[in-house]
Amino acid sequence: MNQFKTVALLSLLSALLITVCYWVIGGTGGAIIGVILAAVTNLGSWYYSDKIALAAYGAQPVSFEQAPGLYNMVRRLTERAGLPMPGVYIVPTQNANAFATGRDPEHAAVAVTEGILNILPDDELEAVIAHELSHIYNRDTLTQAVAATVAGAISFLAQIASYSMWFMGGSRDERNGPNPIALLLTVVLAPVAASVIQLAISRTREFEADAGAAKLTGNPRALARALQRLDANARQIPMQGNPAFEPLLIMNGFSGGQMLAGLFSTHPSTEARIENLLRLEKELTGGRV
């Protein structure tokens, strides 16, 4: 069900991009440009997503000699999951967080912050890494990168529409160019709709990765404890980086507090994730906790 929901939301996001192009540029030509733009942004996300995300957070590659404990933990879980060994990176920040990126399992990377290495015991760090490997296994890293790129393109087009209204005075009609009412709707509603869809995709994939980590480690409670620690840390030490890549993180790393509404949250609430993990624990243990 979550996989179907993700595909549906991605399709809706691409359709929104094509519609916005139709409104901003006008007519069939605008729709065709929208299709081309959607294809180009998706291709760019597919090829460059790992490099962009790692650079956004200043992640540095580490070898076995530099971080043997972390490297062995990633390798052990990777073998258990039946995945190729990803690149291992450390982000120089005391915010406790982690993320995975890459267009497919053969071109993937797992990054953890110095902060998470400092505050989590081994079983909880293992659960976090298993969560990130689940993202790689499910190809969420590509899904989230595509969603972020398409949403960004929609916001950019909305900016163009606002400039068009400002300089053209909204005097054009459908015969001579974009409809001014459609332009107004684009400026006001399109970026909001794109963000809502992108964030819904992110929340869906987090629940799926939590479940994958629970099954991979056989220890859902370790991830539940880790999420509690990470949530407390995020409230004290914000993550430095581009907020556009926040959906990649295991924990909302920028706000340090509660979101105004679940609709605009990059992640499910920590409470909901923990509740789901404890429910999985009962399923895995046959009701024995």
Rank of each mutant, 00 (worst) to 15 (best):
A148W: 04
L189K: 00
L12F: 00
N233C: 11
A31R: 00
A272I: 02
N97Q: 14
E79L: 11
Y89T: 11
A153T: 03
P92L: 09
L125I: 14
D210M: 12
S269L: 06
I136R: 00
I250Y: 02
A100I: 09
I154N: 00
T93N: 12
F4W: 15
P268I: 03
F156L: 15
M85C: 15
T78Q: 07
A98C: 09
N276W: 01
G34Q: 06
F207K: 08
L16N: 04
L16D: 00
I18M: 14
Y71P: 10
Q159F: 09
N242Y: 01
V24M: 03
A244H: 08
G170Y: 04
L120A: 07
P238A: 03
P268Q: 08
V74H: 14
G152E: 13
A234T: 05
F207E: 06
V35F: 11
L133Y: 01
N118S: 14
R139V: 09
L117G: 05
V112E: 01
N176I: 10
E206I: 11
N42M: 05
L184P: 05
A211M: 10
T19D: 07
Q159T: 11
M85V: 08
H135A: 10
A182S: 08
V20D: 00
A39S: 02
I90E: 00
A127H: 05
Q236G: 06
Y163A: 14
L248F: 14
P84Q: 13
R80C: 02
I197Q: 01
I90K: 06
S269H: 08
